[in-house]
Design a protein around this nucleic acid. Structure first.
Lengths: 340, 340
DNA sequence: TTGTACGCGTTATCAG
DNA sequence: CTGATAACGCGTACAA
């Protein structure tokens, strides 16, 4: 049973003063090389780490980043895409010595806004993994001056790391036209409460016209939600409202696209022979499904790590200017749901 | 911009003493109803919450539970099954006023054992979501007296919430024999480094013999890992080593089973006509795959919530005796990968 | 019923 | 270069 150590007990055991121990830990003030070595060695030997609560109380830094992971639509950590980004973010910031603390509006009997929780916990920064941008509480946070970074969500004044949705749609439509030699395309969008879905839709409308593809832009179907089932329903709705079926369907996310794939199968349409499908995200199952899904891959590791890097910079060098939005390239992964 | 408040500023603004504020917040000592109401109202109005770090430093309770989520095999939060359990656990404990803190061995430059981190952070309890039971650090934790609960992992002396693997295998084999009227079965197990996989294997061997099913028990194939690909490989290996193919394959987890399903398809075997497959877990995609997967469903919500409830009891009533292991019932979900 | 003073483990300042 | 000492914000005896 390791006994509880404080800088006092350490100082005692080493015949030094508590303050000295603190100095070597924080590399502050002047300490002779000899004592520094001695302290460092002893600390390592007995496995001492400064009690975080005391350190947090005294200094302004808590080495904690608040995580806002919207609880609406009850997905939370189960959402494969965002939990993956969060995992990569977590790994990166932990390497840099920061830990995570979930910011929830309600904890026990206490109910506060995001901002109030953040000052209460004295977090050094906040990472908005995924949130609803109609939530007023977020604006309060962003304007508060606490360093904030988000993924997937553009908010005025907020630093954001996001995949280049425009580029993804562009290269995909170019691929459809120049490589697959197809002309008639349709889109299934996700709920536009998500900024990313909105961007993809706008890009689609833009490049369909620029590339002179054939698409009834009014026929875009909006999946009612984020999941498999909504894709299943959406594709049925899409085909029922068109007189001539499209050659290629572009779907705003893989979850939805896989549902669409199943919907097509149930309508006795073969993919890719009768109709082709392209998704967005490259979730794990996109590769495993039958047929495997051609999709625009977002680099989740890069998204999480870039967000981490950006936030740490904001926290540690607050005065240094950085770009407000960082766009990350995406890549079209060709699989079996498309063919020439 | 909300200004920083302490019990001192509050006391000032209300013409009271700091101690009084503390008393009403903690319902300790005697305070007149009038002042209590007044303080409570004011606190709510300005959105004050005691700075957690100061409170943690002073009192023994931190209202924090440490989360051990093994980082080996790099799955982490992306693992759909465990992240789902964790999500339900999180929701429950947050309702009770506790928050989560991930326990990692390495944070920045500091490297400690799980136990050392726990005393350093003064967590009130620990939840081992998933861990490798060969890790010696876990035993140190369990023996330390810090309240601990785990899922999926039986450790001597540790409180565990686990699905009834024995029951699951039993009802499934009974279903195969009495309802599907099949006789020849095989099993694909996961790596037995997982206690749960081990239990399922033992139960399988037990009930195959009790029910007089036909199975070459030496032919059990062990998937080399937890994922889709290992299932794909395992089923190929299984069939290559048998002269007469089994009628039903029982697979230790859905991730592996879905890979097996794809492997069978690639070998031109139709499921369920040529061969039937049953999984374990009921992950989200089990229902969406083609064919949809018959599987033994674990109740992830119940697992997470039961673990939460148990841990809270351990933390708040340390002296009260509770059962060391809580077994939760499972349910066989019939889908398209089996048929009569 | 309310106020006071001390301790929790650090960090920072200022003497020695 | 090193050692004492005062905050940090809160909880809690104990005194008023």
């Amino acid at each position: 049973m390791t006994k509880k150590r404080t800088i006092y007990t350490i100082a005692d055991e080493l015949n030094l003063a508590p303050g000295t121990i603190s100095k070597v830990i924080n590399k502050t003030g002047n300490v002779s090389d000899l004592t520094r070595e001695r302290v460092l060695a002893y600390i390592k030997e007995v496995g001492y780490v400064p009690a975080s609560s005391a350190r947090m109380l005294k200094s302004k830094r808590t080495y904690t980043v608040g995580i806002v992971f919207t609880e609406e639509s009850d997905v939370g950590l189960e959402h494969s895409f965002f939990s993956s980004i969060l995992q990569h973010f977590k790994t990166y910031v932990e390497k840099e010595g920061y830990e995570l603390s979930f910011i929830v509006k309600k904890l026990g009997k206490h109910e506060l806004s995001y901002y109030e929780w953040c000052i209460n916990k004295r977090v050094d920064g906040v990472y908005l993994v995924v949130g609803n941008y109609t939530d007023q509480g977020l604006y309060e946070l962003v304007k508060s001056g606490i360093p904030c970074v988000s993924t997937d969500m553009l908010l005025p004044g907020m630093h954001t790391v996001i995949s280049d949705n425009d580029q993804g749609i562009r290269i995909t439509l170019e691929y459809i036209k120049n490589h697959l030699k197809k002309q008639r395309v349709s889109m299934i969008s996700g709920p536009i409460s998500s900024k990313a879905f909105n961007e993809r839709l706008v890009a689609y409308q833009n490049y369909v016209s620029k590339l002179s593809l054939t698409s009834d832009l009014n026929s875009v179907v909006f999946a009612e939600s984020f999941g498999f089932t909504s894709g299943y329903n959406a594709v049925k709705k899409l085909l029922s409202q068109m007189n001539e079926k499209p050659e290629v369907i572009l779907v705003a996310s893989d979850d939805i696209a896989l549902g669409a794939l199943k919907g097509l199968r149930d309508m006795d349409l073969n993919v890719p022979e009768d109709i082709q499908v392209i998704g967005f995200d490259d979730i794990a199952f996109a590769k495993h499904f039958t047929p495997s899904l051609t999709t625009i891959a977002q680099d989740r590791k890069l998204l999480g790590e870039t967000a981490a890097k950006l936030l740490i910079q904001l926290m540690e060098n607050p005065d240094q200017e950085v770009d407000e939005v960082v766009k990350l390239p995406v890549e079209l992964i060709i699989r079996d749901s498309t063919k020439v």
